[in-house]
């Protein structure tokens, strides 16, 4: 049997759930740039982003047994963990206000990495989306903000914030329909 096979993301998770540190090392190598990149995009500070990224991997290591492949891809699961920790980190540090524009710009930017397997259809949709809709969507989805918080930050009525989130996400969902048929 050859061991040179590239292990699937799921099999690394299985190994981690079984306490296999080799699987964890491979997992970290595979995803560290994605995790650190997202943490940095959200918190904006390299030192804090490194703490967040370390904590995200520790949580993935401890909770690998809870991963459910029917619910999300491995990368989505891991990035959701990272997002939650990043959002917690900036909420604790009131000196670092949330800057949705920074994350929005990052999400819209083309990626050079040939190994990137992200959703380009979604990036295209996000670029076409008017910024006044894209910002509320990013605040709700990526930062976990409520419509009320978004309305306050954006200086718009609550009803307007909800409408923008609703229309924005519905338009991004149309991008999925076009691609996946």
């Amino acid at each position: 049997m050859t061991f040179a096979v590239a292990l699937s993301d799921e099999s690394l998770i299985v190994g981690m759930a079984l306490g296999d540190t080799d699987a964890m090392a491979a997992f970290v190598r595979r995803f560290q740039a994605r995790v650190f990149g997202l943490a940095l995009s959200v918190v904006g500070d390299p030192g804090l982003a490194e703490e967040v990224a370390q904590d995200a991997f520790m949580r993935a290591w401890r909770h690998a047994g809870d991963y459910d492949p029917r619910r999300a891809r491995v990368v989505t699961w891991l990035l959701t963990i990272t997002r939650n920790l990043a959002v917690d980190a900036i909420r604790l540090r009131r000196d670092r206000p949330v800057d949705p524009q920074r994350l929005l710009v990052a999400l819209r930017e083309e990626m050079d990495d040939p190994g990137y397997d992200g959703a380009e259809w979604l990036r295209a949709g996000l670029r076409e989306l008017p910024t006044d809709q894209a910002r509320p969507v990013v605040l709700a989805v990526a930062y976990g903000w409520t419509a009320k918080e978004i309305a306050e930050l954006e200086g718009i009525p609550l009803g307007t914030a909800k409408t923008r989130i609703r229309r924005g996400l519905a338009r991004l969902r149309q991008a999925l329909g076009v691609t996946d048929g």
Binding site: S41, V42, A119, R123
Partner: peptide, 16 residues
């Protein structure tokens, strides 16, 4: 699915 995938758009950055 759209909401979940949004996070995957973040750029990859090599950590320290």
């Amino acid at each position: 699915h759209v909401a979940d995938e949004l996070l995957t758009l973040a750029p990859a950055v090599t950590p320290p």
